[in-house]
Design a binder for these strands. Structure first.
Lengths: 188, 188
DNA sequence: GTCTATAAACTGATAGAC
DNA sequence: GTCTATCAGTTTATAGAC
């Protein structure tokens, strides 16, 4: 049996991928473990061979979502250096709002994390600091300070979170464009 | 029986007040109707004399939260004209993040609304347009345009939403201060 | 309009066969 | 490691007494 661990980790990854999508779409309490496992083509009894509880799954989903997030994708493609404009436009776009791409957990999981335990908050905080670092060091040439990066992160996350709650697609477009336009004013 | 309607509306308001606080703290799916009614000193059987479903309660809670929100409070006190600084600092403060004051539904309900039905999205959108109007017309003298108001709203809501998901109080303080500091740059 | 009682469905988690 | 079966608890919503 040369690769037993790998086989298990692949199943684990499949569960996490389903969890990220479902949690992002419907929220922690409105997703059952049965639904997650069904989505991953397994039965719900098998869940506890991979995670000890639903809360642990959520914490791991925060990290898993980070690896597949829109920004992680363009970071990999770019050899570590990105234009400021590319970062902002990749985040504040309709595809991300509608979750046609794997969503950033900072936007999709924020409210859930507020009402969950310390582990989830720790994971969220860790990912948030990661975004600040990207904004401060990887945005080509401009290098905003920590204060600018923080408010920029709030603007980006807020823009996506609010867009997801709005009804009218035209207003959503207007909001995303407004955030993109004003983002550059923040780092000056 | 001179005021039978009033009596009923007071009970209704009591239910809504409990609903706002609980939904904001724990989220739609993690609050049961029994819990709401218990908080309002009633039994859960009485719920359906006031609302037809939990989703209808949520929609009404969005509007009820608006009336008690931090901005509605300072608007009433100020004869309709507020300094831009006062608005931003009233919203982006620890008391609002920790929900020691009745919270703004745009921050507390955003993620829940994303996964709920059209009625909830309509209510959210309506309240959001109300915030834009306040930012555009009530902020003394400066009168930002719609684009500035939109990005300012995203910054304010994002700042509160992210703060609630973070672990470290010092980072939360830093984030709120950063958003306050950069808010004024947006409307210029 | 509020209560108690209950229906019908679903939840997270566990036990044991394979 | 995955399955089926099941437990005990909770959920929204309804029915009927007062």
């Amino acid at each position: 049996m040369p690769w037993p661990t790998t086989r298990k980790q692949e199943t684990r990854k499949k569960i996490l991928k389903s969890a990220v999508r479902l949690f992002a779409n419907k929220g922690f309490h409105n997703v059952s473990l049965g639904e997650v496992m069904r989505d991953a083509k397994l039965t719900h009894g098998a869940f506890y061979a991979h995670f000890s509880s639903k809360q642990e799954l959520y914490k791991e989903a925060v990290y898993a979502a980070t690896e597949d997030s829109p920004l992680a994708g363009i970071l990999r493609e770019s050899d570590g250096n990105l234009s400021f404009e590319k970062i902002v436009k990749t985040y504040l776009c309709e595809e991300h709002v509608e979750q046609k791409v794997s969503p950033c957990p900072l936007a999709a999981f924020a409210t859930d994390v507020s009402s969950l335990d310390g582990d989830a908050k720790n994971a969220y905080s860790h990912v948030f600091e990661g975004l600040l670092e990207i904004l401060q060091t990887r945005s080509g040439g401009e290098f905003p300070d920590r204060q600018s990066a923080m408010s920029l992160a709030a603007l980006m996350i807020g823009g996506v979170v609010v867009s997801r709650a709005l009804k009218d697609e035209e207003v959503i477009h207007e909001l995303l464009e407004a955030c993109i336009a004003k983002a550059s004013q923040i780092i000056k």
